[in-house]
Amino acid sequence: MLEINALTRLHIGPVNLSLADGEVIAITGPSGSGKSVLLRAIADLDPNEGSLRTQSGARADMPAPDWRRKVAYLPAESGWWADGVGEHFKQPEAVDFASLDLPPEAMGWEVTRLSSGERQRLAFLRLLEHQPEVLLLDEPTAPLDTRNTALFEARLKRCIEMGASVILVTHDPDQTRRMANRHFVLEDGQLLEVAHG
């Protein structure tokens, strides 16, 4: 569950949005319309106004790190702060690599040698370690081929079945059809719901 009330950041908003448990909304819109800006603001990574809450409580009542563990943002390009892949995980031995077609040896890989697709899949697994209540995904399958996109979506569906709410920014109309319950377009800083027949 995620409730967003009067969220504003730069030219974005006020945005009002409410997601039920297990609900997926897709957000589309031209490049530069501020989709990433919106996701960053929801994750409280940039200064913004508005009141947000999940079932665990209001954003204003908890430290920002706690909020970000519950409302997890996967940026389009992931960041890595150590040399080895394993150092980026809390419990490397507990991670289900096979679900995204990665071998267990991936833990020992060097970050600099990862392909963009491997980075993206590892960044997703890393994010799931905290069992977030809400997932904010910024074009998550852009660097993935068809097969890995299918695996990614299957893994995401498992999260949704467990009750996670998802905001999915995507350029892929098929993905929107496959995954989303509702579809919004971000235009002039406002979210407009798109009716699908």
């Binding site: 990574l45 790190p65 563990r69 940026p75």
Partner: peptide, 15 residues
């Protein structure tokens, strides 16, 4: 230079 790496940690709940 390391903005992305720092924000990646923040996003995973680091202070």
């Amino acid at each position: 230079r390391e903005q992305r790496a720092i924000e990646a940690q923040l996003l995973l709940g680091a202070d």
